[in-house]
Design a protein around this nucleic acid. Sequence first.
DNA 1: GTGAAAGCGCTAACAT
DNA 2: ATGTTAGCGCTTTCAC
Lengths: 349, 349
Amino acid sequence: MGKHNTRLKDIADKLGISIPTVSRALNDKPDIGIETKRKVMELAEEMHYQRNEFAINFKNQQSFIIGVIIPQIVHHFFSNIINGIITEAEKFGYSVMIFQSNESYHSELKGTKTFRKSMIDGLIISLADTTDDYSHLSSLQEHKIPVVLIDKVTDRLEASKIVCNDYQGAYDATSHLIEVGKRRIAHLTGSLTPLTTRERYRGYCDALKNNDLKLDNELIRYCDLVSGEEGYQEMKTLISLSNPPDAIFCATDPTAIGAINAVKDSGLKVPEDIAVIGFSNWSMSSVIDPPLSSVIQPDVEMGEQAVRLIIEEIENIRNDKPVVFKTHVMKTALILRQSTLGKKEGVNV
Amino acid sequence: MGKHNTRLKDIADKLGISIPTVSRALNDKPDIGIETKRKVMELAEEMHYQRNEFAINFKNQQSFIIGVIIPQIVHHFFSNIINGIITEAEKFGYSVMIFQSNESYHSELKGTKTFRKSMIDGLIISLADTTDDYSHLSSLQEHKIPVVLIDKVTDRLEASKIVCNDYQGAYDATSHLIEVGKRRIAHLTGSLTPLTTRERYRGYCDALKNNDLKLDNELIRYCDLVSGEEGYQEMKTLISLSNPPDAIFCATDPTAIGAINAVKDSGLKVPEDIAVIGFSNWSMSSVIDPPLSSVIQPDVEMGEQAVRLIIEEIENIRNDKPVVFKTHVMKTALILRQSTLGKKEGVNV
DNA sequence: GTGAAAGCGCTAACAT
DNA sequence: ATGTTAGCGCTTTCAC
C-alpha cells in the first residue's frame, strides 16, 4: 500500500492517460471514449479511489455544511428540532454542525465565529435569551451566508424565520381551562424578552378578555421557566392567596409539573381544585401523576422546514438569484390529559 | 464592495508587496519587518480579511471536524453525551458533526459514507443495536480516520472505547433492593445483543448469587427497553404470577416508569409491595410519583473523555506516532428515591 | 476523444 | 526582510 490515498494522477499514470481524462470518466462527462471510461472505472474501483472532498470544497468554495446554534441540546424541544434538521439536511446531501449557546449571547457569538471558520454554507439559529445584538448574524449575511431563525426569533433581523403559533397555543390552552369551568386562571410566565414568552402571555390575556374574565395581576407570576423548583414555589405562593386560582397556564412543562406537585403537597387535587396546563409537551409530561395537558409544538417539522428554507437561500445566492425572506408560522395543538380533564381518558384535540 | 472576499492577493497588491509576505505578517511568522507587519495588519483589518479555511483545509488535508453517530439524539442519555462532546471539542478547536442511526445498521453505514465525504478527522460512534458488521468502521481506520466507540461498543473492533460500568451499576441497583429487604427480585431486560444490556443482566444475576438468592427465570422478562408501554405490560404479567416479585430492576427508566404505573394500577404500592429501580436516570424520573430510584451514568463526562481520546489519536496519526487503543470504564452511581426508599427523603449514594 | 495549461487561496522551501 | 517558485487535488477552459 502506498502512503497516500489514490489520486486521479495515480490512475492516470497507470493507464498512461491524462488527469482530466480520468476526471471526465469518473464524473460522467461527455466527450469520453467508452473504452477509456470502462478502464478508468475499473482501475478506480480496484485502487479504492475516493474523491478528495477537500479539493472539491476548495474549488467550489462550498462545504455542504449547515451550522446550527441552539440554546440547549438536552431540551426535548430542541433535540427534536435538531432531529428534524439532520434528517431533512441529509436528504439534500448536507451535513449538520451543532453548537450550543447555553442561552448566553457571548457563547452564541463564539459559535458564529467557529462556524465561519468551518465555512458553513448557512446557519440555522435559535437565539439565546440574552441576545440583544444581531450584528454577528447580519455579518454572516453580508458574507453571503444565509441565516434562518427558528423558534427564538427577533424582529430586528431581516431573515427567514420559522416560528410556531405561540399566541394561538396559549390562547387555546387558556380557553380550554375556561371551557372546563375554571374562572380564576393564573399564568406562570418568564422573562418577557423572548418573543415566544411574550406571545404566550398575550394569548393568555386575550383568551381571558374574549371570555369576559378580567386580568388579575395577582395571578401572574414570573420565573425562569426552566426548573420545576420555581414552578413549585410560585404555585405555593398562589395557593396561599386569600383568593387563590382554580387553574393555571404555565408557559413551560417543567414549571407546570412543579405546580402540580405543589398543588398535591398542599392537599389539593388536580384538576378538581386547581387544573394545570403546560406548554411544549415534554416527554415526561405523559407519565406524571396526573398526566399533564400541554400544547404540542411541531418541533421536528419546524426543523425540517428550516432546512428547506436555508437550502433554498443557499442555492439562490449561488445562482445570483434574488433572496426573499419568508416567515413560516407552524400550528400548535392541544394535547389534553388528566391534569385538566380529570378521570376521563386523555384526548388529542 | 468587490465581488469576492478579501484574499491575500488583494492586500499584497494594494501594498505593492508579495503574497507570502502578507501571509507571514498575518501568521506571526519570524522574518517580517515590523513596519510591513503593521501596515499589513492594518489593511487586513480595514478590508475585513478572513482566512479562507477551504484553502487551509485543502492544504493541510484536515478539517478539524469530529463526526458523531448516535442512535437517537432525543434520548436524554445521548443528548447529554453530545453535550459533553461538543463542549470538549470546542476547547480544542474542533467542530462536531452529528448523524443519527435510529438504531439501524443501514443508516449507520450511510452515516459513515456521508462523513467520509465531509472529511471528518475522526469518528465517535455509539453502535446501533442492529449493527453486527464493523467493516465500515475498520475501513475508516484504514484510511487513517480514528474511531472511538462510546457506550454501545463491541469486542469485535480494535479501537478505543468509552463505556460505563453497566455491570457494577446493575449489581449495585440489585444489591440495593436486597438491602431494603426485598427477596424476590425481577428483572426487565432487552435484546441481549448490545453489550450494555448483557452487562446489566450479568450484574443482576451476580448480585442475587452473592446474596444467596436464586435466579428465577420466571422473573426475567424481555422487551424493547424503549417504551413505557412494554414495561407496563410486562409488570402486569409479573404481578399476575402465582408467586409475584416484591421488587424489580428495570434495565431502563422508561420501562421502570411503565412498571410503576402497572403496580399502582393493580392497587399495589411502590415500594411497599413492589419496589422499582431503573437505569440511566432520565430527567423525568425525579418528577414521577413516586420518584424513581435509578443508576446514574456519567454521560457528559463520557462524551468529554471520548473527545480527548479521539483528538489524541488524530494527532498521533498526523505525527506518525504509534496509536495505542485505550478503554475507559467510567463509574456509575446510584440515585435513590422513593420508589425504593419509601417516604424517606431521597439520598444520593 | 484527449491533452496541456490555468487556477481555486494559501503556505513552505528556497533564493536573494 | 522579502520575493520567487512550487504544490496541495481537482475541474474547466481551450487547443488539437
